[in-house]
Design a protein around this nucleic acid. Structure first.
Lengths: 342, 342
DNA sequence: CTGTTAGCGCTTTCAG
DNA sequence: CTGAAAGCGCTAACAG
């Protein structure tokens, strides 16, 4: 473990105490506006603190057992628009309430996620908001968090065997309704491009897809389930595969906005016109309308609401209004922005 | 100051010591792989620590004066693609090297930025990477950081009176060359939409714009300088204003990608065809080519390189390879991606 | 109203 | 090789 570079000495309550000829406990009291302190003393202490640029040392506080205001936010992929927006929204909410957010990226890896959890414990973070890594089939590291009594909230992707608040979108209904929307518009051969089914988001969407097809007695059923990452290239490949089959889809539901980009690029490459040759509806974020061609009909996951709900659940845990042992789920509704892609 | 919710007791070296019947200082040594410790003892300690899920308490370490691995990253606006990408890149680099990044948003406000600096000091962050808020004309809070000996690196937007490493793009040359590019293509009335000139980025770009015009003896010179935020609406307004003048521009340089969106939307609203009616070149990020219509010719600020350079400068400061008193500037070169907007 | 004391968890002398 | 003791900055209980 390295030592400090030579820091200019930190100003402590003892420095202030010495300057004023009082005891440092008096300074401590004055700074915390203890009513017992003589107003004159208090005034002098505050002035001196201000003059010297005193800042309390949170490490000392924390060591004594006072809680801090730091929350760890763990996301699988920091570049993904969805997570970027979540980060932005949560950071804002937190900063306003005086909380400090640290961002960690698991890179979809179990090992990294476990390491991050260890770091979180080492640094005494007050709480953890997490969207689980794709490769985290084992959830033991989250149990460790609970051993240390650190509040935990899942959003979007959750671990089914951990009892903690979960903020999820209504994946099943959203997919179901999207398929019905396509069927209503006359599409008959609807395909689904999606991620691995061990993740709740994709499982629920796939279920919605299948059950909507079943309800309307549709025979055609073609899911391309991507297990290893969800890259633009994976979207391209899925599209390629669909078009190598004898029966080609006339509409596609994409469960990831990154995959959608691949689908669009491959469609362009193949000279397919959307929605004439193939329709497309995609899970994703609100777009800047009017600039992207074609405008994609999007099942919007409202990141602001997800962020707010997640942060609020965390606040409740931190304030002891709920306990960490409640495994309830809050569902955030999606909405559809109509483009010209279906 | 609130107290802990009832935490499950944290495992400490004393717990391990008690279980093994040794002194906690021995445990401490064993955990740090001190060669003086008896291999048997060491083995037992490590096993017990593992079994109990021991994690070191960084607060205790920090209180003793050991440095931690936390870096604060302060950005003016977390939703801006540029900053989002910087955040992503720096977080990645940091996580790999075992550093923890906390994100703060100043919301372009001086007061908030000052508050953040105070928080950074309170929490003993090891370093600060910052892009300055628009409203921070006063730089006293950054001086406070130096009083506390906390390493500071500026990127993109810097405070001229603070001597710290700065990572900036070659704004002047980029703007200059963009204008020459437009002139080379035959454009004669080139306008500039930009932000407040007290920020180095916009000042340098405006200088490049003006000097390129002067070099080629162009009379037309129309800058719309936006002082209060750089919203989509501001971009629209700028466009509106240009088109209310008698002499309308035939090309525009936009110094912000957000403004560019406004410009595009207003152009669409007015039925202006790009680049036939007006050409457009914009500072911004790498786009997903092939999907946005028209594809904007973009002066790309390579966020990955900026992030890497900033983080590396921070590492150097943390490792004492440079001192915080060197106010040198590292310039990162932009490059142009050709679209069909000029 | 203020000072004294102890202790949070850890490392680091200094003694054995 | 290991234990004892001190101390990082702060607060809280206790004693004046």
């Amino acid at each position: 473990v390295r030592k400090y570079r030579q820091l200019n000495k930190r100003i402590t309550i003892k420095d202030i105490a010495k300057e004023l000829g009082v005891h440092h406990s008096t300074v401590s009291r004055a700074l915390r506006d203890d009513p017992q302190v003589n107003p004159d003393t208090k005034k002098k202490v505050l002035e001196t603190a201000e003059k010297k640029g005193y800042q309390i040392n949170m490490n000392a506080l924390q060591l004594r057992g006072n809680i801090n205001n730091t929350i760890a936010l763990i996301v699988p992929n920091i570049r993904h628009t969805f997570f970027t927006n979540i980060i932005g929204n949560i950071t804002n909410l937190a900063n306003v309430k005086g909380y400090v957010i640290s961002i960690f990226e698991s890179n979809e890896k179990y090992e990294l996620e476990r390491e991050i959890i260890n770091t979180v414990i080492k640094y005494n973070f007050s709480g953890v908001i997490v969207s689980m890594a794709k490769n985290s089939l084992n959830c033991g590291h989250f149990k460790l968090l609970k051993d240390y009594g650190i509040p935990l909230v899942f959003f979007d992707r959750m671990c089914p065997d951990i009892q903690s608040p979960r903020v999820l979108v209504n994946n099943y209904e959203s997919a179901f309704q999207a398929i019905e929307l396509l069927i209503g518009r006359g599409y008959r051969r609807i395909a689904h491009v999606t991620g691995p089914l061990h993740l709740n988001v994709f499982q629920e969407r796939q279920k919605g897809y299948l059950e909507a097809l079943a309800k309307h007695s549709k025979q055609y059923q073609e899911s391309h389930i991507i297990n290893k990452g969800f890259s633009v290239d994976d979207g391209k490949k899925a599209m390629q595969l669909f078009y190598e089959k004898s029966e080609k889809p006339d509409a596609i539901l994409s469960s990831s906005s990154v995959l959608t980009i691949g689908i669009l690029l491959k469609a362009k490459e193949k000279g397919l016109v959307i929605p004439k040759d193939v329709a497309l509806i995609s899970f994703g974020s609100e777009q800047i309308t009017g600039l992207i061609e074609p405008e994609i009909t999007t099942i919007v996951q409202p990141e602001d609401k997800i962020a707010e709900a997640s942060f609020n659940e965390m606040l409740k845990l931190l304030n002891g209004q709920t306990t960490n042992n409640e495994g309830f789920t809050r569902r955030i509704n999606t909405y559809v922005t109509m483009g010209n892609s279906i």
